[in-house]
Design a protein around this nucleic acid. Sequence first.
RNA 1: GGCUGCGUAGCAAAAUGGUUAUGCAGUGGCCUGCAAAGCCAUCUACGGCGGUUCGAUUCCGCCCGCAGCCUCCA
Length: 485
Amino acid sequence: MLKIYNTLTRKKELFQPRVAGKVGLYVCGMTVYDYCHIGHARVMVVFDTVARYFRHQGYELTYVRNITDIDDKIIQRAIENGEDYGTLTERFIDAMHEDERALAVLPPDLEPRATQSIDAIIAMIKTLVAKDLAYVGSNGDVFYAVNQFKGYGQLSGKNLDDLQAGERVGVDMAKRNPMDFVLWKMAKANEPAWESPWGLGRPGWHIECSAMSTCCLGNHFDIHGGGMDLQFPHHENEIAQSEGATGEKFVNVWMHNGFVRVDDEKMSKSLGNFFTVREVLQRYRPEAIRFFILSSHYRSPLNYSDEQLNDAEAALTRLYRALNEVKSVFNETVDESYITRFKQAMDDDFNTRVALSVLFGLAKELNKIKEADPHKACALAATLKYLGGLLGILQNDPESHLKTGIVSQSTSEFTKWLIHDDEQFKKDIEKQIEERRNAKKAKDWARADWIRNSLKDSGVILEDAPDGTTSWRIPTRMEVDPYGK
RNA sequence: GGCUGCGUAGCAAAAUGGUUAUGCAGUGGCCUGCAAAGCCAUCUACGGCGGUUCGAUUCCGCCCGCAGCCUCCA
C-alpha cells in the first residue's frame, strides 16, 4: 500500500490512482539556459526513482517532464552570448540529456517544450479571459486576476492579505492587484514572439506548465511534482490557472523534493554556490552522485560536500564488494523477506534511505555465506542487484567498479580516472602481483610488502584471498583522502 | 512581519510511545606471514524547559537555534 506525502494536505496519504492501474505524473523540468547543477540532478533522480517504482508496482505510468525553452533569462543569456535563443536552448537541452544519462535517469515519456505548446497556452489564456479570471493590463500584458479565484493560497498555506506583495519587489503598475501574475507578455523589439489575440508576445512561465500538463495528462491527473521552491508561487498559480480554466480539480497529489544545500544554504544560481553535474562528474563516478541523492529522504534537505560524496562512494563500494565474484542468476529463489522490507520502505513515501539499508543487510548476509553456500550466495546477489536496479544503482560489473576509481596524487592537484580497460596498466599490476607471489613463496616478506606498498602509493590496493590468489582494486576516495580535498 | 519545515551519536541519515536502524570513522577480537577485505563484539544519541503517560527521542505546549517560501529559482 503506497503512501505519499501530499503537500496539499500536508499528510501522508494512501495513493489512489484516478484510474485503476494508471498514473499520470507531471514534473516541472528545467529552464534551459545553463548546465544542470546538483539541485536539478536531485529532481531528476528523485522522480526517476518514483517513476521506476510505479512501473515496478505494475502501474501504467505516463511521466511528463517539461522543458522551459523560452523566458527572460534565456533571452538575456542569448543576447549576452550573441547567439540565437534556439541555438542556446538546444545546446543546453542536449547537455541536460547527457547529464541525465550519466545519472541513470530514464527519459520521461513525454518532454513537452513551451515553444511547441503555444497554441494550447493561448487557448487556455483565452478561456481565462473569457471567464474574467484574466485581463489585459495597461501595458498590454495579460494578467491573471488572483482575487477572482477562490482557493488561491490553498497549496502554499498563504492568504492574499499576508503576502504583503510589493514589499520586496517594486509593484508593477500595470496590474490591478500586486499579486496578479503575467500570462502573456508583450514582446519588445527583436525578442522572440508569437502571434496572439493580444498581440505579438510570449507566454508567462506559470501558464506553460498548466497548458503542457493538461495537454499531456488531461484536466485532472494524479501527481504533480517539482522542487520545494516551486510551491509558491509557481504551483499555486498553476492550480489557479488550470482549475480556473477547466472548472475541474487539477491534481490529486503534490510532491515536492527538498533542496540541495551548500554549507546549510540553498544551492542556487542566484547565490552562485552551485556545482554543475558535469563539474562533479570530473571527480566522482555518476553512481556515487545518484547514491548520494538517494541516501536521504527526498523531502529532507541534502547538504552537498566532498565528504558526503566520499561517503556515498564508500557505501556504494561496500555493496559492489559484496556482489563481487558471485554469479548473480536471476532465476534463483530469492529471499522474499528482503524484497518485502524494501517495498515497505518504498511504500512509505519513497523512503529510499531505509530501502538502501535493506541492501546493506543483504550485503552483510551475502558476505557471510559467500564461501560456505555459493548457491544461496547467488540468490542473495541476484536479490541485491534486482533491488539496486529499482533504485537505479548496482547495475555495473562489480569488478570494473572496484578496478575503476579516482586517484588523487596528494602532492599536486592532479586527479585522474584509472580505467580498468587500460591494458598496459592492468598488465603492469599483474606483473607486480606475480613478482610478489614469488617473494611470498620464498617468504621474502620484506620484498612482498615493498611491492604492495609501492602499488598502494600509486593508488592500487592488493588483497590476498585465502586460496593464495591476489586481487587488486582502486581505493575509494575515503581511503585515500578522508577529509575530501 | 506572515506561512512552511527541521534540530538524532565523531560525520551522514532513518524509524519508533517501552525492544539492533543503516553507511563511514573509532575501539577490542577472529581471519592473515603482516596487511586489505570480510565476520563478531563494542563506545559515542535523540536542542532546552514543562505537560500528558506506568513509561517519550517519539504526543502536546513554550523557548532556543537553523533552513525555505512570501521576486526568478529544482
